[in-house]
């Protein structure tokens, strides 16, 4: 489905070369939930932007469904940490934005939006504006908006980074539920080990700057997983040994 071959990226500002990604190769199969786990801020968002087509890699190649990625396309949906909702559109307006850009007629758009708003459990909030929603609800709208454009690949860039802990646990369960009902290939970025363990079929561990792939962990715990089961805690302990800290 998605494959990155020897992708690297160096930023150049006023003469100073700053290598952010170094020789990253990874594969993501159809409808697989892959979590990219990495410390701090270095490189993860850049990798997402490259996969989404908003940014270009300086070396290597990224292909989705066999086609080379060279710009943003509706087949790839993105969910952002700061939700990036359009503040002047209602929930319905936000979710239906993709189809509107594609030129779908109004009635059809409304139905599509309604379906995904119900999927993320926000029925009844169609007419409210983002400013009036809580952090968790805004993330749900972000997910619904990405789904509504029916992408084959969903890129989620630390979507719960700003949520308080309790909402974060609830949202992890929400994503688990939505994903099981409407399977898509998901690339989920996070710096939280518990979140990665709870959601991932496979975890790809990235190193600190410049980011490379350190190792991979196949997670075959039965779903939905339990945060305080002994196997969960053992796995967490094992993985956290490999994670470099950022300072």
């Amino acid at each position: 489905m998605i494959s990155c071959k020897h992708v690297s990226k160096t930023f150049e500002n006023n003469g100073q070369k700053n290598e952010v990604l170094k020789d990253i190769s990874l594969e993501v199969a159809e409808n697989e939930f892959v979590v990219i786990l990495g410390p701090g801020q270095c490189g993860k968002t850049t990798l997402v932007n490259i996969m989404a087509g908003l940014d270009h890699e300086t070396a290597g190649s990224v292909t989705v469904n066999g086609k080379q990625v060279d710009g943003p396309a509706p087949e790839r949906g993105v969910v952002y940490q700061k939700t990036a909702l359009f503040p002047w559109l209602t929930v319905e307006g936000n979710v239906g934005f993709g189809p509107k850009m594609a030129g779908l007629p109004k009635k059809e758009r409304k139905e599509k939006a309604k379906h995904y708003i119900d999927l993320v459990g926000l029925s009844g909030f169609e007419k409210s504006y983002p400013i009036k929603l809580s952090g968790g609800m805004r993330q749900r709208v972000g997910i619904a908006r990405a789904y509504c454009n029916n992408p084959s690949v969903l890129l989620m860039d630390e979507p719960f980074g700003h949520l308080d802990a309790q909402t974060r646990y609830l949202m992890q369960e929400e994503v688990e539920r939505i994903w099981s009902q409407d399977k898509r290939t998901v690339v989920f970025i996070t710096n939280n080990i518990e979140e990665a363990l709870y959601l991932a079929d496979r975890i790809i561990l990235l190193s600190n700057c410049p980011t490379t792939v350190r190792n991979e962990f196949k997670i075959d715990l039965p779903r939905p997983r339990d945060y305080i089961s002994p196997e969960f805690l053992k796995l967490r302990e094992e993985i956290s040994k490999h994670v470099e800290t950022t300072e």
Partner: peptide, 11 residues
Amino acid sequence: YGQLDLELRFR
């Protein structure tokens, strides 16, 4: 330590 990464929180 509510906002920090897991390993930072341990430290």
